[in-house]
Nucleic acid binder design. Structure first.
Lengths: 154, 154
DNA sequence: TCAAATTCATTCGTATGCAAATGATATCAA
DNA sequence: TTGATATCATTTGCATACGAATGAATTTGA
């Protein structure tokens, strides 16, 4: 029972076998946040005049055509408050137009304008480059594995 | 040479072998954003009175002790403007205290208060649960692989 | 049928997150 | 030494992101 015993006891005290140290840098949430930050920076470097959420809205509208604002939001993972701001700004830019649903008067329909369609068609090839650059630190095989696992977490 | 030929030609027209369709749901940036959202939701469910960035600041201060605001920011991946807001709110909550650097008068030193230290010590076990729950959709082996690849992207 | 519950959208408040501009201080270099 | 640079912090402006509250319209169910 020589020196250092107290510290050792402290370590073993807890119910679970927890280490005394905690490394923020190794936590999935912290790294996830950094990886997302890096992606956004790559996106901004390629597409300066549109944010990732704005791009997502246009890309989804291209896929499915006219939809209600909330429906669009749920498809691109934005709550009602967030999607409203995104759509407002896209409307101000002339990329989407809004109209009222004839039958269900609660709904606000969103659709691409010709300009919005041109923009998204033009940007999709750039978006492919952004995806490529984001995944560049990984080999093709690693990238495939990563995408598979990431999808499970999302 | 029967019907559909024109569509086929259109597809092959481009320089690169690009598909005509673009699936937002398969883009790494979009999934990364969703995975991050899910993690933040899990975090909030476990720790209601602190955000992930606030937690990160406290955890890092616990690691390294007193530092300047900007230095802390770079360690937890926040720019100067962002870290200022986070520290301001932690100060208002009594979790950190600020002081001027004696030699370099530009620097603003940040340190944990006793209350801040208590809080972070108490929350670290909860943070381990948050990490665990975030990775729960993956097997242990998958989680290890994922963390290794994610770190390469961050 | 009609009251209760649900859905759609808006608004408000709070918290990141980053670019750009600014001011104060410190460091470097001629 | 001093003039040019660089660093630290702050502020402003803009854009997500989400909880909570609200109001309008629709759907449900007893």
């Amino acid at each position: 029972m020589s020196g250092g015993e107290e510290n050792l006891l402290k370590l073993v005290e807890a119910d679970e076998p927890e280490e005394n140290d905690y490394h923020l840098q190794e936590q999935v949430g912290f790294i996830l946040r950094k990886a997302h930050q890096r992606h956004v920076a790559i996106f901004a470097a390629h597409i300066a005049d549109l944010t990732p959420p704005q791009f997502a809205a246009l890309a989804k509208l291209r896929d499915i055509g006219e939809t209600s604002q909330n429906q669009l939001g749920s498809l691109i993972a934005m709550d009602a408050a967030t999607v409203k701001g995104v759509i407002d700004r896209l409307k101000a830019r002339g990329f989407v137009e809004l109209s009222k649903h004839e039958v269900d008067k609660r709904r606000l329909l969103v659709n691409l304008t010709a300009e919005g369609r041109d923009a998204i068609e033009r940007l999709i090839p750039v978006a492919r480059e952004i995806t490529e650059e984001t995944l560049a630190p990984l080999s093709a095989k690693e990238a495939a594995t990563f995408m598979r696992l990431l999808a499970k977490l999302a």
